[in-house]
Amino acid sequence: MVRGMTTYLLVPGFWLGASAWDAVAADLRARGHEATAVELGHAPGDTAESHVSDVLDVLAAPAAPAGAPGPVVLVGHSGAGPVCVAAAERARDRIARLVLVDTGPLPDGVAQIDFTPPEAQAATRATLAAHGALPMPPRAELDAAGSSTAGIPDPLFDEVRARSLAEPAGVVLTGVRRGETDETLPKTVVACSFTPGDIRPLIDAGVPGFAELGGPDWSFVSLPTGHWPMLSEPGRLAELLAAGT
């Protein structure tokens, strides 16, 4: 084992498969670490809770992740943020650090859709009613909705979208079951499409989903880019993770 090796478990957000982490994982391995990306389920019956189970199953496997001998750094992007928070709370002994990439926790049972404007919720529900799943929107729609694609070359974005996975209705419409928060677990938000200063007023106001970020166990680091840093700035993201972010 490489001296000082850390094991990272990387969890993709909405529409992305494990391959979205390929560049970050390769960079971490080149630095002497282990890195494994989780493939979340996208079957019609999957829910936010089943995604938590996907992560817990990897953590509980005898040789997982990647033969890790001890606790891992659990990293969740975007829609995987609340999933990873719940998984970390329910498998605390397997987690050394929690890192949320351009995302944050949600209160117990609160769904992703609940944190979007009413008109966006209506459009999402209409798509789900028509198709039973939510496909990855075009680039312009993502940018307009606040999920900035800045920094991603057009050919790469087109490739990622072509391989994207439609999110089942249950993943979009349901929340996760939170466990017990442990303030001894270090937690970091990597802020990409927003700044720590952007959310400070929400923390101070006690807004659900933000208030807990003001706890002593939470820290922030900035990585100015779009909402998808594993695609726009994979080397820099890997550097931050390897530095103990």
Rank of each mutant, 00 (worst) to 15 (best):
G76T: 03
P107Q: 06
T47G: 08
P107V: 12
E141Y: 03
A80C: 13
E180R: 15
P65S: 05
R94T: 00
A169N: 04
A86K: 09
H51I: 00
T184Q: 10
P153E: 13
L173V: 09
S164K: 07
A169H: 07
A166S: 14
L98Y: 08
L156M: 14
L142D: 01
G45D: 14
T124F: 01
G175T: 03
L156Q: 15
P137G: 12
R92A: 15
L106C: 00
V101W: 09
V75N: 04
L100T: 02
V101Y: 02
M136Q: 13
L106W: 02
A61S: 11
G81N: 05
R178H: 02
V52K: 08
F115I: 10
G81A: 08
V72D: 06
P135M: 11
T127A: 07
S164T: 04
A123L: 13
A60T: 01
S164H: 06
E89G: 12
L134P: 00
P138C: 03
P135G: 07
Q121R: 15
P107G: 08
R94G: 04
G67N: 09
G179D: 08
I152K: 07
V160M: 13
L59H: 05
E167P: 00
P65I: 01
G179L: 10
R178A: 12
L128W: 11
A63S: 14
P118W: 11
A80E: 03
R139C: 02
T103P: 10
L98C: 09
M136R: 11
L98T: 04
D46E: 15
A111G: 02
L74M: 12
P117V: 12
V72S: 12
R163M: 13
A88H: 12
A133F: 13
H77Q: 13
F115L: 10
R178I: 03
A130K: 14
R178W: 03
A66Y: 01
I113K: 10
L100A: 03
D158Q: 15
G45T: 09
A162N: 08
D93Y: 06
A64K: 04
L165K: 14
P117N: 07
A120L: 08
Q121E: 08
H77T: 06
D93S: 15
T127G: 01
A166W: 11
L128K: 12
F115N: 12
P65H: 07
E89K: 10
H77S: 09
D158L: 15
L56Q: 14
H77R: 11
D108C: 05
P153R: 15
R177Y: 01
V176H: 01
A80P: 08
T124W: 03
P82S: 09
L59E: 04
A86T: 06
P65N: 07
D143N: 14
A48V: 01
E180P: 01
V58S: 00
R97S: 05
S148H: 06
A130T: 02
R125N: 00
A64G: 15
S78Y: 03
G179V: 01
G104S: 11
T174L: 09
V171I: 14
A80I: 08
R177D: 11
V176E: 02
G179R: 02
G132R: 13
R139E: 14
A68Q: 04
L142R: 13
I95C: 07
S164A: 15
G67T: 06
E49N: 01
T116L: 15
V171Y: 10
P62Y: 09
G109Y: 02
G79F: 12
A87Q: 14
